Deep mutational scan, measured.
Amino acid sequence: RRRVRAILPYTKVPDTDEISFLKGDMFIVHNELEDGWMWVTNLRTDEQGLIVEDLVEEVG
């Protein structure tokens, strides 16, 4: 499975499927959606939700 790491922190918009995260958080990518969004699991918090790919980098 594809893994990505947050390069910046992010605070979710209330009442959306987004998740908040810290710089350095690792995610497993489940689905890549339109307009650069990804459905992921945050490995630190075990939370699932949407993040935008501009805020993460690939992990080898």
Rank of each mutant, 00 (worst) to 15 (best):
E32I: 14
V40F: 00
K23S: 10
V59T: 08
L8E: 11
I51E: 00
G49Y: 01
V29Y: 02
D46E: 15
P9V: 05
L55A: 11
S20Y: 02
T45W: 02
D35H: 13
P9N: 11
I7Q: 06
L55K: 12
K23N: 07
W37Y: 12
A6F: 01
D54C: 14
I28D: 15
G24P: 00
D25P: 01
G24Y: 07
L50S: 08
E34N: 15
T41R: 07
R1E: 15
R44D: 04
P9E: 12
L8D: 09
R1W: 14
I51V: 10
R2N: 07
E58N: 12
V4A: 05
V4Q: 02
K12L: 03
T45F: 01
H30K: 05
V4S: 02
R44E: 06
T45H: 02
F27D: 00
I51N: 00
R44H: 05
W37P: 03
Y10T: 03
N31V: 13
D46C: 15
D17W: 10
E34G: 13
L8M: 11
M38Y: 09
W37G: 06
R5H: 05
P14N: 09
L50D: 01
E34Q: 14
D35F: 12
Q48N: 10
V40W: 00
L22E: 13
R5D: 01
R44K: 04
D46K: 14
L55Y: 13
R1H: 15
V40R: 00
L50Q: 09
Q48A: 08
R3P: 05
E57P: 01
R1P: 15
W37F: 10
D15S: 09
I51K: 00
I19D: 00
A6M: 01
H30Q: 09
T41W: 07
D25F: 02
W39P: 00
R1F: 14
E32H: 11
T16Q: 03
V56Q: 02
D15K: 08
D54N: 12
V56G: 01
T41K: 07
E18Q: 12
G60L: 13
K12R: 10
F27N: 00
L33Q: 11
R2L: 07
T45V: 03
P14L: 07
D17V: 09
M38E: 01
R2S: 08
D15F: 12
L8H: 14
K23H: 07
S20A: 04
V56K: 01
D17Q: 11
R3C: 15
H30G: 05
P14Q: 10
E57F: 05
F21E: 00
L22M: 11
I19P: 00
R1A: 15
T45M: 03
I19Y: 01
W39F: 11
L55S: 08
A6K: 00
G36V: 03
G60K: 14
R44F: 05
V13C: 15
H30P: 00
Y10W: 06
Q48R: 10
V59W: 11
R44W: 03
L50G: 04
R44L: 04
E47A: 07
W37I: 06
D54Y: 15
D15C: 15
V56T: 10
K12G: 10
W37H: 08
T11C: 15
G36P: 05
M38G: 01
V29A: 02
R5M: 08
E18C: 06
P9D: 14
N31I: 13
D35G: 15
E32T: 14
N42T: 02
K23P: 09
L55M: 13
I51S: 01
E58M: 06
M26Q: 09
K23M: 11
E32A: 12
P14K: 09
I51L: 08
D46P: 01
K12H: 08
G60A: 13
E58A: 10
K23T: 12
P9M: 08
G36T: 04
G60C: 15
T16V: 03
W39Q: 05
V29K: 02
T45K: 03
L50E: 05
L55W: 12
I7F: 06
G49D: 00
D25W: 03
T45I: 02
M38H: 03
V13Y: 11
E18I: 06
I51G: 01
E47W: 03
L33F: 13
N42L: 12
M38A: 04
L43H: 04
D54Q: 11
L50H: 05
W39S: 05
T41H: 09
D25S: 01
E47S: 05
V4I: 06
K12D: 03
N42A: 09
T45R: 02
G24F: 06
I19Q: 02
R1M: 15
V40A: 11
L50I: 14
E32P: 07
H30W: 15
E58G: 08
M26I: 13
N42G: 02
E53L: 12
G24M: 04
L50Y: 09
L33Y: 13
G36L: 03
P14T: 09
L50R: 15
P9F: 06
E58S: 09
T11H: 09
L43V: 14
F21S: 01
T41L: 08
L22F: 09
R44A: 07
V29C: 02
P14R: 07
E57V: 12
I7V: 09
F21D: 00
I19S: 02
E53D: 13
R44T: 07
M26F: 11
E53A: 14
H30R: 05
P14I: 09
E34W: 12
D46M: 14
L22Y: 08
G24I: 03
V13N: 11
F21T: 02
T41A: 05
T41Y: 09
P14G: 08
D25L: 01
F21H: 02
F27K: 00
D46T: 14
D17C: 15
K12F: 03
M26R: 05
E47F: 04
I28A: 08
E53K: 15
D54F: 14
A6V: 01
E32V: 14
V4M: 08
R44Y: 05
I28C: 14
E18R: 04
V4Y: 05
D25G: 00
L33N: 09
L33G: 12
T45D: 04
L33S: 11
L22P: 02
E34K: 14
P9G: 14
W39G: 02
V59M: 10
V29M: 03
T16A: 03
K23A: 13
N42F: 02
G36F: 04
D15M: 12
R1Q: 15
E53T: 14
P14H: 08
R5S: 06
L50V: 10
D35Y: 13
E53F: 14
